[in-house]
Computed example of a mutant assay.
Amino acid sequence: MMKIILSFMVFMVSLNAAEIYATFSIQAKKSANLAFYSSGIVDKVFVDVSSKVKKGDKLVELQNDDLRASLRMAKAKLKNAEVSLKFAKKDYDRQLLIKDLIDEAKFDKYLFTYESANVALSSAKANLAYQQSLLDRTLIKAPFDGIIFEKTVEVGDVVSGMMLRTVFKIQSQRDRKLILEFDQKYWKKVKVGNSVKYTVNGDKKVYTGKISKVYPYANSENRKIKAEVKVKNFIVGLFGDGYILVPDDK
């Protein structure tokens, strides 16, 4: 009974709507080509093709023992700078209380030591941030939740800063989008929210969706305009066709 009612509703909508033919390809909602921007030798590969990853997961790492040692030294220098500033401030605060009772040149020495400690601390923080950034360049992490669909790196590979290359390709795991193309003469009719009925090549089922985005330009070469429909679970790269339902002018 429910199927009959739904079919009747679709039939009624079709009576009051014009159909605009469109073709489409299926793309991932998110995708990215990941590459190092530092040179080195690949030390660890944490994932493979079809690996499902979470945002921030480690994917691949270059040899970086020297940078880790430099980072530890930078942290130690920062700790020393913090201690030096702590005692310099104590000395300065004590002298500040008796400033009018001591020689001005002597007070200036404590002030100079305190200010120098402040500068040293700022320098230590900057150095730590710099060393951390160098280490971060040896590691690629997942930029979003997704699935690895291409891998071109193995342990022992050399990565050169003169010839950086994509080592992983990642795409959203389930979220997809149909990239529709329709004739530009319908630019006034097709709007966000229009219903779309479509089929994917190799699948006889008729699917439905709604336009979530209309691109604000027409391709001058093929005279087509693009639009998007949010979908899930289709294989990226598939294509198909269907119809955009718009209000009938009649």
Results as ranks from 00 to 15, higher is better:
124 A>V: 07
47 V>N: 01
233 N>H: 02
203 D>C: 08
174 R>Y: 09
110 Y>R: 10
54 K>E: 05
42 V>Q: 07
110 Y>G: 06
138 T>E: 01
119 V>R: 07
30 K>W: 06
140 I>T: 03
101 L>D: 11
216 P>A: 04
124 A>R: 08
216 P>R: 05
231 V>F: 02
22 A>K: 06
242 G>M: 05
76 A>W: 09
249 D>L: 14
238 L>A: 13
184 Q>Y: 05
87 F>P: 01
80 N>I: 14
102 I>N: 06
225 I>Y: 01
84 S>G: 06
29 K>M: 05
37 Y>A: 09
215 Y>C: 05
243 Y>S: 12
224 K>V: 11
145 D>H: 09
189 K>W: 08
64 N>S: 15
208 T>S: 10
196 V>D: 02
59 L>I: 10
98 I>P: 00
189 K>R: 15
50 S>E: 11
84 S>E: 13
8 F>S: 15
229 V>S: 00
214 V>D: 04
128 L>K: 15
82 E>T: 13
99 K>S: 05
28 A>P: 14
116 S>P: 00
46 F>N: 07
142 A>V: 05
238 L>S: 12
49 V>W: 00
205 K>R: 13
25 S>K: 10
124 A>M: 09
43 D>F: 07
37 Y>D: 15
216 P>S: 02
140 I>V: 09
147 I>M: 03
98 I>G: 02
54 K>C: 00
